[in-house]
Amino acid sequence: MSSTLILDAAAIQRALTRIAHEIAERNAAGDDVVLIGIQRGGVHLARRLGASLRQILGHPVPTADLDVSMHRDDLDNQVAPAIHPTVIPFHVTGKTVVLVDDVLFRGRTTRAALDALNDFGRPRRVQLAVLIDRGHRELPIKADFVGKNVPTSLKERINVSLREDGGVDEVRLEKL
């Protein structure tokens, strides 16, 4: 198995800072932006984006964790997935929700996230921020904010490692 470095720690930091600025730019002041990280990959990224946005906007931006296991469309085809906590400590109705994930691939997770989010209320609008967009969408889903577009083949895998999980910050493309 060969592995290519796509983003190192500094490049991840730059990408997240740029996304934070784009989120601030896209949404007018008073739009009530909240960040919801999708378990597991998006949770740490949402926290980091929240910290950046706080500096840019000058006020705290609420963040939350969303697990989509119960809303997946492939539960019949695999061993039951481990469920991670969903913690949304605010009302989503009327808010501008930015869903955050590490990798956008087939779009199935995002669809499940939209469904799961629906159980918590009716956001004013939902946007999608991802660190990596690797293509191969199977659903009409598109990211609003992308750290890096990485064209991939289906035989490749994107591996995002983050320091919050005890590793180093890096994104690698692995050929299986």
Partner: peptide, 9 residues
């Protein structure tokens, strides 16, 4: 949990 585990895996 029982609902899973009926697929290829």
């Amino acid at each position: 949990l029982l609902n899973g585990g009926k697929g290829p895996q």
